[in-house]
Amino acid sequence: MIKTKSLTKTYKMGKVEVNALCGIDLTIERGEFVGIMGPSGSGKSTLLHLLGLLDNPTSGTILLDNIDSKSLSDKEKTLFRLHRLGYVFQDYALVPELDVYENVSLLPMVRNLAKERYQKECNDILIKFSLSDRANHLPNEISGGQQQRVAIARAMVNRPEILFADEPCANLDTTNSTMVLDLCKEINIEMDQTIIMVSHEDWHLKYFDRVIHLRDGLIEKDE
């Protein structure tokens, strides 16, 4: 499903070049729940951004379902992300002026799906994520845990092939973190959803099928 070969990313910080990734080779299969772990500066988020087509590698290749990311134009990448990928960010990243239902239905609306169809799917997913009673609330009117569930619902309503989660529990307490991780695991098992999650919490390990440990831009361990 995802295959990378000699993936590198170098940032320029003024005159200094920082090698964030120094040649990553990995393959991720459909339905895997992969955790990317490692210390700060190890390249976790950079790898996630490259795999999620949010950034371009300095060298190397990324194949998503055998499609080389380099062959896609910016617009094609945008459409690829819209139709085939899902994202959950550390700080929920909901549109503050849209209520819970509108946040969840935004992407199907952009995809120009029939209103009747996405209305049902959004309502179903809100029920599934125990958010139906918060459907008309604005993001600032609900808790952090609920906001993150809305963010996952927003990503999942599109039925993405891969769900990317960048430290989704970083701003949550243990109770809410557990709730979010349980939800991800449930999605992974029930829907055979591929999930790639960046985390630095050791207690998250039990949720992952596979853990890729990064250090200094290289895979230290893949287990």
Partner: peptide
Amino acid sequence: RRQIGILKAVGIERSI
């Protein structure tokens, strides 16, 4: 800016 970045990240076209 951040919100615009996120909207682009989740697949919303620049023109929108």
